[in-house]
């Protein structure tokens, strides 16, 4: 069954048509890898898929329901990871994640948060303001969400591997593979070649003038 399907999607940004009449579907356990040059509209497309921005025409469906009509249900089953991390610089890693979990109705104990941060190689950095962490470390903090919300049905990741070291890339790739084998669906972009050992669908966006 298709987790996410898209019909006749067109997006215009700054009076420039990024793409039009796009149709595709992502099934349970399916991985869609969106490729394209800079400026081809990958990020814009992911934001439309996540429901952050309305498309100019066309529909996005989550489990056969228009996402406009099932916003709450959709967002409960979605993890979106964008260019902006959604991590407050003044708060510590643990505070940030606790707040995120509360907001997204994920009940998780503080111990689990510490454990996950340890898995992500952030021991000793849990309680200092995030501003003191390096770019890669901050990304790891944000990525911890994928450890908390494994029961989601769809993950959308926009350039998740940027600023991560090889070990971080492996950690995340493993996590994605596990999620996929558990029946989750993933849509992602990446400029690095994917190091995920899993059947992948590709979608290439052309740059238009």
């Amino acid at each position: 069954m298709a987790v996410l399907s898209v019909t006749n999607l067109s997006v215009v940004k700054r009076d420039r048509l990024l793409f039009e009449n796009l149709n595709f579907a992502v099934k349970q356990g399916g991985l869609l890898y969106v490729k394209g040059q800079n400026g081809a509209g990958k990020t814009s497309m992911l934001r439309v898929l996540a429901g952050l921005v309305a498309a100019d025409s066309g529909e996005v469906y989550f489990s056969q329901q228009n996402i406009q009509d099932c916003r709450e249900n959709y967002h409960q089953n979605l993890v979106y990871f964008g260019h902006k991390l959604g991590i407050n610089q003044t708060l510590s890693a643990v505070e940030n994640l606790q707040f995120w979990c509360k907001q997204h109705l994920v009940s998780i104990s503080v111990d689990t948060i510490y454990d996950t941060l340890a898995q992500l190689n952030l021991v000793g950095l849990e309680d200092i303001p995030v501003a003191n962490l390096s770019a890669g470390q901050q990304r790891r903090v944000a990525l911890a969400r994928f450890w908390f919300k494994r029961d989601a049905k769809l993950w959308i990741l926009d350039e998740p591997f940027t600023a991560l070291d090889t070990q971080g890339i492996d950690l995340l790739s493993n996590q994605i593979t596990q999620f996929l084998s558990g029946g989750g669906a993933v849509v992602m972009t990446s400029h690095q070649a994917l190091r995920i050992d899993y059947p992948t669908d590709e979608l290439t966006l052309e740059y238009r003038i």
Binding site: L78, K84, G86, Q103
Partner: peptide
Amino acid sequence: RDDFQDGSLEQLMLSST
């Protein structure tokens, strides 16, 4: 301002709140 710039606002919009 801060919530917009660091993306917390995005996450808020995608949450159940």
